[in-house]
Nucleic acid binder design. Structure first.
Lengths: 187, 187
DNA sequence: GAAAATACGGAGCGACGACTCCGTTTGTCA
DNA sequence: TGACAAACGGAGTCGTCGCTCCGTATTTTC
């Protein structure tokens, strides 16, 4: 898994432009958006896209990774706060993201395949780590019931995110509240 | 919305075979399965499929309708039981279905678009009606909190179904329990 | 049982999407 | 600054998919 020699300057620029474009195109049109659309948005030729990401799936995975890292950043930022609010804030944030960006939920489910599907996938591992930290802290603080693990949480996160895609904001919030109530320790 | 004259005998047979085939093909491969696969499975020509369902979407919708009706049947069967168990039983059943049949969750989300998307769609209306009956009864029996409506419930149902697709059975059950806990009246 | 109506099958059309190939351009390094 | 490697662009290939068209087969009707 070496990295060969460094990319030429223009190649680096283009790679970044492509990732940016892919993120916004996938967000707007879903993962079935054509590679050509991504290239157009990035202002490069299709050939360039395929040189950087030899198969469409690699492009998707790269975008996924970026997203999960953004989520992880959010988690890190929130970790300054108290464990409980950090946990619920993160969950809300993730779902909110999914609501606005059509392919966002796919990130999560694809990532989660880690355990049950094909290759392990870096993305899945990172997501699991992020979520687990948050969860354990919140459980120790007594804000979340202790009989669940990261797997259940990720399942719920994915479900909530997918459901969020087509639902009005207020319904989304109320549905989320229900899940949160279920997550709290049994009184 | 008349029904013209009755179909010829062979035409009726074929229509049924196509619907059957579509159900199982979509379940196995998802909604992106090709029409030709459906035709092959049904043992008819592609032309026949398109004569009965002039656009792919009409075939999908027909399959959806059949599914929602099956759900409604389940709901009716359960309604003999007490309101609470009927409600949670239905929810569990629906999610369980989604878990085994890949395109099943799509039925629900597509149907739910009723309120927020394109045409009203018969499917959506039937689903909403089914769910609402069950919900109201359960609420009256004190088994479900009263501050939620069918919209929130359908959102949760969709979310749970989508999440169920790629998750192991035990995780699925535990996640579902969390949602159920959230649905119960605040003690 | 023959004519008319209806339905069937599947080759073929047009569109589209992933991916390749190669002549041209740009960056790098001595 | 010249020469070589690295990267670019996008027309073109191949495969797939939705859908049409029409000669053939099956029902129905009288």
């Amino acid at each position: 898994m070496g990295e060969g020699r460094p990319l030429r300057a223009d190649a680096q620029r283009n790679r970044a432009k492509i990732l940016d474009a892919a993120e916004s195109v996938f967000a707007a049109q879903g993962l079935s958006a054509s590679t050509e659309d991504v290239a157009k948005e990035a202002g490069v030729g299709i050939g360039t896209v395929f040189r950087h990401f030899p198969v469409k799936e690699s492009l998707i995975e790269a975008v996924f990774l970026a997203r999960v890292r953004k989520l992880a950043d959010k988690a890190a930022a929130l970790s300054e706060a108290q464990a409980g609010p950090a946990f619920y804030g993160f969950f809300t944030y993730a779902v909110e993201q999914a609501a606005t960006q059509s392919a966002y939920a796919d990130v999560l489910s694809e990532a989660a395949v880690a355990g049950g599907g094909e290759e392990p996938s870096v993305v899945g591992a990172e997501l699991a780590a992020t979520v687990e930290t948050l969860l354990v802290r919140a459980q120790q603080a007594g804000a979340v019931r202790t009989d669940i693990g990261p797997a259940e949480l990720i399942a719920l996160l994915i479900g909530a995110s997918r459901a969020a895609e087509r639902v009005s904001p207020d319904v989304r919030l109320r549905a989320l509240d229900i899940v949160f109530d279920g997550l709290r320790p049994v009184r």
